[in-house]
Simulated assay, not measured.
Amino acid sequence: MADRVPSVAELASELLDRIGEECSPAERDVLQSLASGQHSHVHTGLGAPTTGERLADKVARVGGSWAFIISFTLILLAWMLLNTDVLKHWGLVFDPYPFIFLNLMLSTLAAIQAPIIMMSQNRQSQKDRQDAAVDFETNIRAELAIAQLHRKVDLLLDRADVEPDGRRG
């Protein structure tokens, strides 16, 4: 015997303990897909990343690592050492203290790197939102399956005339 597919309102009442109008749009979408018996297509993916997106991900991965911080610190120290002591003997100092050119380069790097890292973070948050939507749908589906199993067990117990504590009625 085929099970009757419950309506969206019935699912909302049964699974979420509220009426359909109180559900969020995401909850309604999941309940609608459950009522129709089809999986919703929540996880459509982000598609193949563009060259710019791949570059942003690499910049974020490298720029947020200890290897970058340590190597960049060593480069800055070498720059300052060269421009204060080493090149001073030959009169070749190209960026004397207070290192104005170095400050300009650091400001330029920060101005370019920050939005690139933000692009990568935006992509990651979009992935996280999609994963959360898939997890939500999975949880609702699991709740429905458990509720259906409870109904079937209750039906079997009623047919066998057994009380919920296991005693015969």
Rank of each mutant, 00 (worst) to 15 (best):
E10V: 12
G64L: 01
L102A: 12
Q121F: 10
A114E: 03
R4E: 13
E143N: 15
R4H: 12
F94H: 01
G166N: 03
A56N: 07
E22H: 08
L92P: 02
A145W: 05
R159G: 02
L16G: 04
V162N: 00
P96W: 04
Q38K: 08
E10N: 00
L104M: 14
S36I: 06
A26Q: 07
K58R: 14
E27P: 03
A160P: 03
A60S: 00
W90Y: 06
L16P: 00
S71V: 13
T73P: 08
M1L: 14
E163T: 10
V134C: 11
K58F: 05
V153P: 01
R61T: 11
S7Y: 02
L11E: 07
V134R: 14
T44N: 08
Q32P: 04
K127L: 15
S13A: 10
I112W: 13
Y97L: 14
H150K: 09
R18Q: 13
V86H: 08
A12P: 03
L82Q: 09
F72C: 04
E21T: 15
K152P: 02
K88H: 11
G52P: 01
P49H: 00
M118A: 08
I140E: 05
E137I: 03
A48F: 04
V86L: 15
L92S: 09
N103A: 14
T73L: 11
D128M: 08
A110L: 09
T138P: 05
I75R: 11
T73R: 09
A114K: 02
R123I: 09
D29I: 02
A60H: 11
Q126G: 01
G64Q: 05
T73H: 10
M105P: 00
E14I: 15
G47C: 05
P98H: 00
A142W: 07
D57I: 04
A132S: 06
S7L: 03
L106T: 03
G91N: 07
R168N: 00
M105F: 15
A67T: 11
S36W: 10
R159V: 07
D29L: 14
V59D: 01
L106M: 14
H41T: 11
H89Y: 14
K88Y: 08
D85R: 15
V8C: 03
H150Y: 12
D29V: 05
A9G: 13
F68C: 02
L15K: 04
A60P: 05
